[in-house]
Structures are given as structure tokens and as C-alpha cells.
């Protein structure tokens, strides 16, 4: 049995961001493994440990430099990496990534494909279910728990009001929430071993996916600062005193009581 996890390198949202002339200036040094994908890798590794899955591999579409993110997943414990290399300046939307991934998976063997529930930077949450549709696979999104019995997965997905327990036959696609687990931090041994693990590289053109005009269906025109929310008043002092003041202000000034 094999689980392939789709992982993405994303800018660290905790790093300072600047916007200049509507463009995002990102510190190219502060790129990380998408937190949701880290949870997906963790989930796959836990299943591997508990159910003797033969292989956990990761696939990433991104520029040369994103390789370090593959290494990170390998250092966590994944067995193998596949790097689909893009040009630095390429910017794809989820639709295009999903098509590329579908092109990749078309002739490959896998039992389950795991994705992150969303990208931490764009919060789109589209790629996983798009990929499932392109491959004609059943899927479930926003998984917060996974269990395996007789080679089939049961996912707990967070729905609007409760958790839905869903049986997902293989082959299938799961998108993982970071609420599922706490991804392990690679140990030094893991980091050292990761260097010797295989990483195949494939160029986008090798996939034979036609990325013509239509395949990127959405474009980002510009970025802007969020209208700043100013800090209001901060009350310090005796609890009774500040409680009384704020309660009154909520009533008379804010009119929300």
C-alpha cells in the first residue's frame, strides 16, 4: 500500500509582509512546508507506523529552491520525494496545480492521495477536491482524524455543525486539517537520513499537461493592506473598576448590549 502526500512550499505568514505598488514583497527566505501538508505527512506516517504501509511518498510542484521543503518531509520520515520543477516566476492557481498533479498521478500507482485542506498563504482549499474530480476519485475534505481497517480509510471530517465519519474506499483523496495532529519536528537523525532518500525530479513539460491559457482560470491583480483596525482603549487597574467602565462603555458608547 502506498500513500502519496501532495505538499506545497508556502511563504511563512508569520514573517513580515510588505506591499509595494500592489505587489507582495516576500522574503524568499521565509518559505515553509504548508502547515496543513505537514499534518497530512504526519497522518500518513502514523498510518505507516500503525498499519505497515509500504511507502509514504511526497510530491511537490515548485521551483528548484522548494526542494528544501521536500527534504523537510523526508526528514519527518517520508520515504521518497518527487519534485515537479517549475520556473521561479510561474504563478499557478489551484486549478492549474490540480491539473498538473492529475497529470502526474495519471500513470502512477497509489492507494490514497493526501493533500492539505488549504494553502496557508492563499487559504483557497480547492486543489484536493479538484484533483479528485480530475482523477475521478472519491474524496473527503477537512479531515480531522483518520483510521484504517483492512486497507480502507475512515475519515472524521469537520462539518458545519458536527463531525462526519466517512468511509473512503481506495483509491481516494483526503484533504487534511491541521487540527488532526501535531506534526513531528524532524530529529537530527531524520535530517541526516533525509539526505540519502531519493528525490525524483520531473519537469512540468514531462507531465504532458497542456497548461494553455484556459488552465489558469483566476488571476491575482494586486494586494492591499487590510484596512487597519486601530487598537482602542486599554483598561488597567482594579478588576471591579475596569469591569464597570467597560460594561458601561459597551452600553452607552458601543451600543452593543
Amino acid at each position: 500500500m502506498k500513500i502519496t502526500v501532495c505538499i506545497k512550499q508556502v511563504p511563512d505568514v508569520n514573517a513580515p509582509i510588505q506591499i509595494k505598488d500592489g505587489q507582495l514583497i516576500q522574503d524568499s527566505n521565509r518559505k515553509i512546508l504548508n502547515a496543513y501538508d505537514a499534518s497530512a505527512v504526519e497522518a500518513a506516517l502514523v498510518l505507516q507506523e500503525d498499519h505497515g504501509i509500504d511507502q509514504v511518498e511526497v510530491v511537490l510542484i515548485g521551483p528548484e529552491k522548494a526542494k528544501e521543503t521536500i527534504r523537510k518531509a523526508l526528514a519527518m520520515g517520508a520515504d521518497k520525494g518527487i519534485h515537479i520543477i517549475t520556473e521561479e516566476e510561474n504563478s499557478f492557481d489551484s486549478f492549474a496545480y490540480a491539473q498538473l498533479l492529475a497529470g502526474f498521478f495519471k500513470d502512477r500507482e497509489y492507494d490514497y492521495i493526501f493533500c492539505g485542506k488549504q494553502s496557508q498563504d492563499t487559504d483557497s482549499g480547492l486543489t484536493g477536491s479538484m484533483l479528485a474530480e480530475f482523477l475521478g476519485l472519491p474524496y473527503t475534505t477537512n479531515a480531522v482524524g483518520l483510521e484504517m481497517a483492512d486497507g480502507d480509510l475512515t475519515a472524521k471530517r469537520q462539518g458545519d455543525s458536527g463531525q462526519e465519519i466517512i468511509e473512503l474506499p481506495s483509491p481516494g483523496v483526503v484533504t487534511c486539517s491541521n487540527d488532526m495532529n501535531d506534526p513531528r519536528i524532524p530529529s537530527l537523525k531524520g535530517i541526516m537520513q533525509s539526505k540519502r532518500k531519493p528525490v525524483d525530479t520531473i519537469s512540468v513539460t514531462d507531465l504532458g499537461v497542456d497548461l494553455s491559457e484556459e488552465s489558469t482560470k483566476t488571476i491575482i491583480n494586486s494586494y492591499e493592506e487590510k484596512p487597519e483596525r486601530k487598537a482602542g482603549e486599554k483598561f488597567e487597574g482594579e478588576p471591579e473598576e475596569i469591569a464597570r467602565k467597560v460594561a458601561q462603555l459597551l452600553d452607552t458608547e458601543a451600543n452593543v448590549i
Binding site: I185, P186, S187, L188, I191, M192, K195, R196
Partner: peptide, 10 residues
């Protein structure tokens, strides 16, 4: 090349 390492987050 394969035996020397830079390890971060450790």
C-alpha cells in the same frame, strides 16, 4: 557531500 550536514531547528 553526503556525510556533512547543516541541520536546523535542532
Amino acid at each position: 557531500a553526503m556525510e556533512s550536514f547543516i541541520a536546523t531547528n535542532i
